[in-house]
Write a protein that binds this DNA or RNA. Structure first.
Lengths: 351, 351
DNA sequence: GGACGTTGCGTTAGCGCTCACTCTGTGCGA
DNA sequence: TCGCACAGAGTGAGCGCTAACGCAACGTCC
């Protein structure tokens, strides 16, 4: 790497404030001010400093800045799993909201495992974030304790049915499950089952499942048939579970799926078995994934306001950082009714 | 926040090494050693320090560690767009490989825009990462310059047809485009078109497009019909583009799509127009998305080895950090042949 | 014309940690 | 008896920056 052109040994990454200062002939702090509070300098000096900054390709060292400064420029975000999954759009909206204020997002993953979630939270806290956001509201005590003791704003996303550590923005998943079942019942399906991935610690999925049971009970029907698994929810899982379900409960004519990916496999398996959707069986998904409107039949699904949740989370974090109090809010969702529950008629025509 | 129980004012986030040291009655450095090099301490002392560490819930401050230490624990990753998109699995595999060595991944997004990519790279370099990984191999000069001057390992992912800054691991996208077209031609489709999102700076998409043209030329056929747009590639775009395409070129009987999401919309629009797939028109996608095997007809698609690319990127980064030289490697991909190009017969039976 | 802001910059003291070095005591061979 | 290697712990400097304060030189106003 060699030596810098004019001023001391070359630091590990790029120029330092001290080098810029030496080049211009001012103190280090003056250069810092030129960046952070330009209006406190004479325009002429400011120009010279700006030129030197540019010549040396100065990139502020945010590590040093965070250590010295009052507040960090990082926000930690923990999701169950960004990948093959439903939280990407939430994180994108969150990130967009925070980037505008120059906050960096640092991502961690729980993989639906409380121990790994605690590990991810601990790892992120090591970077001393200004705030944290995480998916879910029912957490392991270690997680709640660490987050509570951190003394920073914490926003729990996606779910609202629980006790928030600080702030929360999400949906009522029991109500979603109820709505899935009620929709099927309203369309004349009587034997409703729940199919999908049901990991031990995916509290949201359990709540939706409970909601289905509630709706059936309210309609004077029995418990829903269950075909669930702790494996990740993908089409193949849906196919296997529905095969197993129909072997045990051939009378099932309505299926509430825990995710759209599972529903894709359910539709395929039903087709392979000669069960017509929606005439023989109605299927409703959760998540409104990209392909759902393109399937045959198009999949009826619950659409969560992902972008809104991410945007609101960013807003709450920024407000909390400026002294506002904690907030807890529930966001609205809707059911996109498509052909997979349109018994006897076509609800949405293909393009 | 108040004062700490035993030793100095409460710092901004959690206990410090100095507090732990004061509690045990040793020097700060000894506690640091207990964490970084436990074998250099007496077991008895180590036990007492471990107890104090635990009691105070000490979480190492990685900001301070990075500033003081020789090397950073961060790796910067820039993708076009993680969301609605194809890079999630790559990043997941990359992250898994790096997390094992205690590296944190920091994500940035280019949104297929060179200026935003430069901004993302600059922002990430501000955190003084130990290495960088980014999607694509054809970058704006500013990006190449910044990365070259940073003096850290740089791995360019996903594409290989260009000059690497340091290391690269990806696919030959021209060859992919050729394979898409050759597959269609081999199935008897003669009038091949390209449909999909073709952003000005998405070099990979342009290369695949060029590959299609090459294959047609080699077969003595003319230029492919094009129906492209700078909008993001989703099913609706596919539907609109194919409508426009068929209006201009009703003879088209083979469609190579730039992404599976676009292909979904293409299939839906063809169905709505009464064009039978695969009998009248063959459709091949790119990306092998989750739903592709569940569509009717199931979509033939190019499957990129996402996990392998991510894993190899992690391996190269770790090796480079330990002194190994730069590497450039091309990974293999394949075409999953399904019903959408199975003219006259069913290739893959539904489950 | 002396007390009092104001503007514009320099000085200084850390943030919490790592790393190179120094120091102390112990064991052991010559 | 002395020297000397070595394990085990302490000391001090400094990473690059921010923030609080210091301090000239220049108005401003009674």
């Amino acid at each position: 790497m060699g030596q810098g052109a004019g001023g001391g040994p070359q630091p590990r990454g790029g120029a330092t404030l001290a080098q810029v200062a030496a080049r211009v002939g001012v103190s280090l702090n003056t250069v810092s001010r030129a960046i952070r509070a330009p209006h406190t300098l004479r325009p002429e000096l400011l120009g010279r400093i700006a030129a030197a900054l540019d010549e040396l390709n100065y990139v502020p060292n945010r590590i040093a800045g965070s250590l010295a400064g009052t507040r960090s420029a990082l926000v930690g975000v923990v999701v169950s799993s960004l990948f093959h999954s439903e939280f990407a759009a939430v994180v994108e909206a969150l990130q967009t909201g925070l980037l505008a204020r120059d906050f960096q997002v640092m991502l961690g993953h729980s993989h639906y495992d409380p121990a790994r979630e605690a590990g991810a939270v601990r790892a992120l806290l090591g970077w001393r974030p200004a705030a944290m956001a995480l998916v879910g509201i029912d957490h392991h005590r270690d997680v709640s304790r660490m987050l509570g003791e951190a003394g920073i704003p914490v926003v729990q996303m996606w779910d609202v049915g629980g006790e928030a550590i600080d702030s929360a923005v999400g949906m009522d998943h029991v109500a979603i499950g109820r709505a899935q079942a009620e929709h099927l019942l309203a369309r004349g399906y009587r034997h409703v089952a729940v199919v999908g991935s049901l990991r031990p610690h995916d509290a949201r999925a359990h709540k939706r499942c409970r909601g289905v049971a509630q709706a059936l009970a309210a309609a004077g029907l029995g418990e829903p048939a269950l075909a669930t698994s702790a494996e990740p929810g993908d089409p193949d899982l849906g196919g296997r579970l529905v095969a197993e379900l129909l072997a045990r409960h051939p009378e099932v004519d309505g299926i509430a799926c825990n995710s759209d990916a599972v529903a894709y496999g359910v539709l395929r398996a039903l087709r392979a078995r000669g069960r017509r959707v929606p005439d023989d069986v109605g299927v409703v998904g959760f998540g409104d994934a990209e392909a759902s409107a393109c399937l045959v039949p198009a999949l009826t699904s619950v659409r969560p306001p992902r972008a809104a949740i991410g945007r609101l989370t960013a807003e709450i974090i920024l407000a909390r950082l400026e002294g506002a109090g904690p907030r807890q809010l529930e966001v609205a969702w809707d059911i996109l009714v498509r052909d997979s529950t349109a018994r006897g008629s076509t609800v949405s025509a293909p393009i």
